[in-house]
Every structure is written in C-alpha cells, then in structure tokens.
Simulated scan of single mutants.
Amino acid sequence: MEVKFDFSPFLIQYKSGRVQRFMGTAFVPPSLDSCTGVASKDVVVDEGIGLRARIYRPSRRAVVGGGGGRLPVLVYFHGGAFVVESAFDPVYHGYLNALTAREGVVAVSVNYRLAPKHPLPAAYDDAWAALSWVLENARPGAGGGEPRGARGRAAAAAGRARCRRRGRGCGGLGMGAAEDAAGPAAEDAARDGAGAGVRRRVRPVAEDAARVVARLTAAAAGA
C-alpha cells in the first residue's frame, strides 16, 4: 500500500485515503464510575457529520452536598494536535470522571473530527457547534441534553454558520487539551460575555497549533 504522508509515530496516511493511527485509538464505554459516582453517557450532537460528545454528571449525593441547584457546565476538548486521540479514550475518560467529581460540574467532552481525513477548520466547526449545542440544551426546559431531531441539527448548523462568519476568532474552541467552564451556568456565560473571554485567552495557542497542522496538511497534500 503506497504511503501519501508518514507522520510517525502518530499516523500514516495512504494514497488510498486510509489513515492508520498508532495512538489514541483505545475506546472505553460510558459508565457509572465506582470510584467517583460520576455517571457518563454518549450523545449525538450532529447526526449529519457524526459529531458526538460524552456527558459526565456528578453523583446525586455530591450535588445535594454542594447545596443543590444548577450546576456549572464545563466543555472539554481533548488533545492530540487535531490528528489523534478521542473523547472516548480511557485517559480522558478517567480524568473527566475525577474532574467532574472534584469540581461538581457537568462536563461535556467533545469528540471532534480529526485531520487529515477532515482537515481544519473541521475541528473548529465541530467545537463551535458543540458549544452552541451545550448552550441550547442548558436553557430551562431544553429537555436534558439529547438533541431533538431537527432542533438538534439546526443548533449545530447555526453554530457552524456563526463560526464561519467569525473567522479566526473561532479557533480558540478547537484548542487541544483545553478546558473552560461555559460559565456558572452555560446561558449565564453567554449573557455576560464569558464565552468571548475564553476565546481571547486560548486563541494565541490555538492559532499556533493551527499553523502547525496547516503545514502538516500542506505537506501531505504535496507528497
């Protein structure tokens, strides 16, 4: 099989289009974690592009012990330089179980699409669509996090459209291994502008990563 781009020890892309990854391919299913009491489940954010996420919820005892009420929402983007790893990797799964229990948050780990099969800005679009989906489902009466057919697809599509209009400013949401709370409550963050602050903080790092991946993508295309 002819090689198009050798990015060892991470991956090899073949001229047939097949991508062979050498790390970040392990999968662990959602579960009720016996150590922390955190429950996780997988949801579909956008059926059309296969965008998924894993939601982590602290135990009921932890919520009541923390005073009850509404929980902060944390949106997490796994590392891997946009080319390897996934939200369902055992390392990230264990980390988010521990983080959710320790901080008393609802965590949403986004499984964005990976290059080179899905070159940038696909991961940026996915990240922004996922954040839009979280904001939509965090509103009172939204129904608990599962996309509701056309509504779920429309929220994701609207997120991608906003990302394209905003251009480079959306890059912050595609930063690998970055996590930020979407606010004390997700819709409160949108209202008080915290989301914009998150984008300003992570944008320089995300743009550096984007330039590296762009060079790799260009090298693969010219190989």
Rank of each mutant, 00 (worst) to 15 (best):
A115Q: 02
A127K: 01
L99S: 00
V110T: 05
K117Q: 15
H118C: 10
Y112C: 03
L135W: 08
L99W: 11
L120A: 11
V108L: 06
N137A: 07
R139W: 07
L114A: 06
L120D: 06
P147T: 14
R148Q: 15
V106F: 06
A122G: 10
V108W: 03
P147C: 12
V134Q: 00
V134W: 04
G141F: 10
L120T: 11
S132V: 11
G104F: 09
P119W: 07
V105K: 01
P121V: 03
S109A: 15
V110D: 02
A127T: 09
S109Y: 02
P116W: 01
A123S: 14
L131R: 08
E146W: 10
E136G: 10
A101I: 04
P119V: 10
A107D: 04
P121N: 09
N111E: 15
N111V: 13
R139D: 09
D125N: 11
L99R: 08
A129K: 01
L114V: 08
L114M: 12
V134A: 12
L99F: 15
T100W: 01
N137D: 00
L114C: 04
R148E: 14
G104Y: 10
E103C: 08
V108I: 15
S132E: 14
L120W: 03
R113K: 10
V105S: 00
S109N: 14
G145M: 08
R139I: 09
P140N: 07
P140A: 08
V106G: 05
W133I: 06
L114P: 03
L99K: 02
A115G: 13
A127E: 05
G145K: 05
A107T: 11
R139K: 15
A127F: 03
P147D: 13
W128A: 08
A142V: 10
P147K: 10
A142Q: 09
N137R: 14
R139H: 13
A130E: 02
G144M: 10
E136R: 13
P116N: 07
A107Y: 01
R113L: 12
A123M: 06
N137C: 06
A129H: 01
L131D: 00
P116E: 06
N111R: 09
V106D: 03
